[in-house]
Design a protein around this nucleic acid. Structure first.
Length: 560
RNA sequence: GGGCGCGUAGCUCAAUUGGCAGAGCAACUGACUCUUAAUCAGUAGGUUGUAGGUUCGAUUCCUACCGCGCUCACCA
């Protein structure tokens, strides 16, 4: 049995040549220490520099071991973390620190190091913050100073010593003992500009996070956001549940699913596109308030607003309708904004979004309100009533604005929704609730009592993005079957994103589902809005990218 | 999938009209016991994303491909 260490060499970072030689660079088996410690096979050493640095640092690691330090120790007992020290002692004057000595043991990654003969400085980074250490040969002794000289940017160390202020007044640790904790064998990006290449930032998020504190901050805020959503729902007596990610019918949304296969059962399964139908089954079972925060998977395009896997909050409240849900969602989002940023206002590019003030209008009102100047008279409510009048509206609209396609075979409601998106979406920067959606595009929503062509459904927009979607849940099994059947005919018409029939869901409704309001919230998009991130990849730690090419040697296959 | 743009040292970027591929940081050697983008002296590091083409000569012009970004379409 041989174990093999595969080195992904830094040339890959550089989009540079010779991927194959680099990618397949394999060091001798770990089980043979002599082989491992030996020089790299020169036949594979195309990129001499990177291997030179790697080798050099491995060599330093051996020298560090020779000083009596462990190469990869198991733990370090610390008394403080860097952010803690900065928070507690930033205001302490040098005299204070001298008068009552503060002893500390701290661990961190070296992000800057300056050697000056028999003394030196370094900056330790932990928790996204940096603290300077001062290492003097007289103070740490011969051996630890030798160790200090062997340290590289990126190494992890622990130091014990006491706090003081340097001549220039910077709070620092006067080190008395250094413990080596881990070696960085690959060179970090340049300290001044950091890592800016977006591809590398996504592919090697670990380097991005180590180098760019503002990136770290975004993901800290994301954590606060999710925490806030949970806290709010928990405090309103919702219980969190987990429903299947692998489903036999991918329902609850209009999207193409990913497919997979279970071998033992020999069944094809879909990765879920939404948890909706399962959560509503739970309301049938008597869980009156449920929510789930988890991943959905949609096999659609990738863009600044779309990642194939994304995080969605869905919640359902029995004995409530879409109006209750609207009010509740608004409060949920307002609370999240405050919890994340400490204020109800957030920067969004050149704009400032005010989460304390939600606008509200129906979809039809929005189309009328944002009707383009060049498209003539604003529509009347009656213009939305018939297939012909809607066709007329589209023709009028297209005179003054970008083209909206008209397909006489598609239901009028679907055309109206397209019209809404074309006319209004780009204006919806401040939080806006749009409600009353066409029944044709809302197969899971309850109709309005007085207008069966329209449903009790709303979406919340902000920053020109849809971030939430909710409605009075359709709980009439007979009507639900009809809606599914209408979707099936859409599917036959060629819409492969139309909903599928779900017999078990109909059966569940037949046992009696309480009236309920349900809502979905796009967590990634909300996070984008609250962190002024204009691409979804900046709020997803490891966004989906094309795989790195493994070998230049294999023939390039032309795109089919 | 369509359109536009980008790809040069580990990182951040230069390279005039097509004419010897460079700098800073990082790395290495040496000096330096309060520096902080430490400083000073020296050294090394490149198949300019890949493959072809035009040319006496290609980082530069052309074609295809690979990767990334922006954008349109679809979607949340």
């Amino acid at each position: 049995m041989t174990s093999v260490l595969v080195i992904v060499c830094p040339a890959i970072l550089a989009k540079s040549a010779n991927h194959s030689a680099c990618y397949n660079l394999i060091f001798p088996a770990l089980s043979d220490p002599a082989a491992f410690d030996g020089p790299i096979d020169k036949r594979r050493s195309i990129l001499a520099l990177d291997e030179k640095i790697y080798e050099l640092r491995r060599d330093k690691l051996k020298q560090i071991e020779a000083l009596g330090q462990e190469a990869y120790p198991r733990k370090y007992d610390f008394t403080h973390i860097v952010p803690q020290i900065l928070a507690h002692y930033s205001a302490s004057a040098g005299e204070q620190l001298e008068a009552s000595r503060v002893n500390v043991r701290v661990a961190g990654r070296i992000m800057a190091i300056r050697l000056m003969g028999k003394a030196g400085f370094a900056h330790l980074q932990q928790g996204g913050q940096k603290l300077q250490i001062y290492v003097k040969k007289d103070a740490v002794g011969e051996k630890d100073f030798e160790l200090y000289k062997l340290l590289d940017l990126g190494d992890h160390i622990g130091v014990s010593g006491y706090l003081f202020r340097t001549r220039t007044g910077e709070l620092s640790i006067h080190v008395e003992e250094i413990t080596f904790l881990s070696k960085d064998l690959l060179p970090l990006p340049e300290k001044w500009h950091g890592l800016t290449d977006v591809e590398l930032r996504y592919r090697q998020r670990y380097v991005d996070l180590a180098m760019n504190p503002e990136v770290r901050e975004v993901f800290v805020k994301r954590s606060k956001l999710v925490q806030s959503l949970r806290r709010f729902l928990d405090s309103h007596d919702f219980i969190e549940v987990e429903t299947p990610m692998m489903q036999q019918v991918a329902g609850g949304a209009a999207a193409r699913p990913f497919t997979t296969h279970h071998n033992t059962l020999d069944v094809d399964l879909y990765l879920r596109i939404a948890p909706e139908l399962y959560l509503k089954r739970l309301t049938v079972g008597g869980f009156d308030r449920v929510y789930e925060i988890n991943r959905n998977f949609r096999n659609e395009g990738i863009s600044t607003r779309h990642n194939p896997e994304f995080t969605m909050l869905e919640f359902y409240q029995a004995y409530a309708d879409f109006r209750t849900a609207m009010d509740f969602t608004q409060k949920l989002i307002q609370q999240a904004a405050v919890d994340v940023n400490g204020t109800a206002k957030s920067k969004w590019g050149a704009h400032e979004i005010d989460w304390s003030n939600f606008h509200r209008m129906t979809m039809r009102e929005a189309i009328i309100h944002y009707w383009p100047e060049g498209s003539g008279a604003k529509p009347e409510l009656s213009d939305f009533a018939t297939q012909d009048s809607v066709k007329n509206l589209v023709e009028r609209f297209n005179k003054g604005h970008a083209h909206v396609a008209y397909d006489p075979k598609e239901p009028a409601g679907k055309t109206i929704a397209s019209l809404f998106e074309a006319a209004a979406e780009e204006h919806l920067i401040q939080p806006t609730v749009i409600y009353e959606f066409p029944t044709a595009i809302s197969p899971l929503s309850k109709q309005k009592a007085d207008e069966p062509e329209w449903t009790e459904r709303f979406e919340i927009y902000a920053g020109e993005m849809e971030i939430s979607n909710g409605f009075s849940e359709l709980n009439d099994p007979v009507e639900q079957r009809k809606r599914f059947e209408a979707q099936l005919s859409e599917r036959e018409r060629g819409d492969d994103e139309a909903h599928q029939m779900d017999e078990d869901y109909i059966r569940a409704l037949s046992y009696g589902m309480p009236p309920a309001g349900g809502v979905g919230v796009g967590v990634d998009r909300l996070c984008m809005l609250l962190t002024d991130s204009h691409t979804i990849r900046d709020v997803i730690l490891f966004p989906l990218l094309r795989p790195e090419k493994e070998s230049e040697a294999s023939p390039q296959e032309p795109e089919s």
